[in-house]
Amino acid sequence: MGRIVLDQVSKSFGEVEVIPPLDLTIDDGEFTVFVGPSGCGKSTLLRLIAGLEDTTSGHIRIDGEDATNVSPAKRGLAMVFQSYALYPHMSVRKNIAFPMRMAKMSQEEQDKRIDAAAKALNLTDYLDRRPGQLSGGQRQRVAIGRAIVREPSAFLFDEPLSNLDAALRVGMRMEISELHKKLDTTMIYVTHDQVEAMTMADKIVVLQAGVIEQVGTPLELYRTPRNVFVAGFIGSPKMNLIEGAEAAKHDAHTIGIRPEHIDVSTTEGLWQGTVGVAEHLGSDTFIHIHGVPGCEPMTVRTDGEFGVKHGDTVYLTPNLAHLHRFDAEGLRLE
């Protein structure tokens, strides 16, 4: 179980309203990612669900029961923090056992769950070490272990991977995804990294300035961003947004075209520009092109072997089937 419903929830710090009233439903077993630029209120929203902050107004329901004024300890949720927040004075075993100790669970049951968690997370050999003696990835696993032994109705992750290096991050991303498949428990995951959001989520909630910009599956957001903000935020490299005369040709205030939906040619095309920087990744080449009217610079993706260099003239043709149109308010036009 783990269905979480936010009903007109808002949060203000003093005079500053960081989250205007919002509604959101997270279904049981769903992997939901809150994503947005830093300061968008996504962590605050998570902390409201956790009970670490009071809501200013509105209600939070967990499995149908009003949890708005329930203390964090009694909400049946587990949280993994950005800094892992392990207890430095306790061994890994004691860290993992702590929530069970607080719940006054029998010693046998505790041992059983610790062993199971340690096995699942590859921590068996480290149970007697202190957190200080572990690597970043291992600490992360201990934090997850501490969360799963409680068998919570939902897991909350607050940017759990931001302190890991790039390679580890990819590995942990998969581990968390697999964990979700195995446990089939609700997970709410906060990140500013849209790649994490795209790869892990069942449902993505895009936030900006405390306001939900769009809720949907990763592909929905990719295919039909509801507004310019989501269009620019989801997808890597970013969607090219073009204003002015070029947009007017399509009866829009702004048009957007993703770098992967533009054909590049050295001989002919709709738009002409000069190559600024070409990033050769091997599998792909990202070219930043100057001189296209209404978009400076325009980024395009092409295959890895495409050989252009700084100063070359190239011609671009957008794939009109993938063109996004937005009105003056930034909203999507169908």
Binding site: L52, S71, A73, M79, S83, Y87, H89, F98, R146
Partner: peptide, 26 residues
């Protein structure tokens, strides 16, 4: 770090337990 105390709170510790088992030893 306050996050560690918050972790204790999420782990079901009461205020007394938070001070006794987490803050004081640290």
């Amino acid at each position: 770090p306050g996050e560690i105390l918050e972790a204790a709170r999420m782990d079901g510790a009461t205020l007394k337990e938070e001070i006794l088992y987490v803050l004081t030893p640290m």
